[in-house]
């Protein structure tokens, strides 16, 4: 894979078959190519999910075919089909049983928004109650669309992933990246409408006050 760059680095002579790269990139590369989906198939989309894994479409070509029905073994939940009131607690429990790092694909209109079932029993989008990484539109989506979603998710994992899982830290994600602070220097932007920046500024002012 091209993500782990080989060759010399900073004048250091490396022996043969040794590559140097970012640890994050290596972890991401491993994670994205060993996605084990947990098919949370409830309805029609589940049949298309089966079609994706069966003959002709063959998800195995994209490195995510090891369907495991135990949440403890999986790291990608594919919610295929509508989730109703009675099922949502089950969905949440299964999501909580999955090990980190974990991702969620909401497959189909019903899982994403409730779809045509705007009724008393159907949850209007699972993202109201659990985190979702990727939405696949369609009713049901074609297998090609699901395969594309998995490829996109792999791409996302490669781009954003960190070995310590900082990308899953919702509070931490709101803070400015350290590199950005170093590059751009202290905050200069207008903080009047951004409470996050206001807090950062206040913290910086406190730190300065404590020093003096």
């Amino acid at each position: 894979m091209a993500v782990v760059h080989s060759g010399s680095s900073g004048g250091l002579e490396l022996p043969e078959n040794v590559m140097v790269g970012q640890l994050d990139a290596l972890a991401n590369w491993c994670r994205k190519n060993s996605l084990w989906p947990m098919p949370f198939a409830t309805a029609c989309c589940g049949i298309e999910l089966m079609a994706t894994g069966a003959a002709k479409h063959d998800l195995a070509r994209f490195g995510a075919e090891v369907f495991r029905f135990s949440p403890r073994q999986c790291d990608l939940m594919i919610v295929a089909g509508r989730v109703v009131m009675k099922m949502l607690p089950v969905l949440q429990r299964i999501w909580q049983q999955m090990h980190e790092p974990k991702w969620c694909i909401s497959m189909g209109a019903c899982a994403s928004t409730g779809g045509v079932f705007d009724t008393y029993a159907v949850v209007q989008g699972i993202d109201r109650f659990i985190p979702v990484d990727m939405y696949v539109p369609g009713c049901p989506p074609r297998p090609e669309q699901l395969i594309q979603a998995i490829i996109d998710l792999q791409d996302k994992i490669q781009r954003e992933g960190t070995i310590t899982g900082r990308e899953f830290d919702t509070a931490g994600r709101q803070l400015r990246k350290r590199a950005l602070v170093e590059m751009a220097g202290p905050l200069t932007s207008d903080a009047s409408r951004n409470p996050m920046l206001q807090r950062e500024l206040a913290a910086a002012a406190d730190a300065v006050a404590a020093k003096t």
């Binding site: 009131m85 949440q92 008393y120 159907v122 109201r128 109650f129 659990i130 830290d169 919702t170």
Partner: peptide, 11 residues
């Protein structure tokens, strides 16, 4: 009734 569930975030 369909909105009456706990919300689980990444945290």
């Amino acid at each position: 009734e369909r909105h009456n569930f706990p919300i689980i975030t990444r945290d």
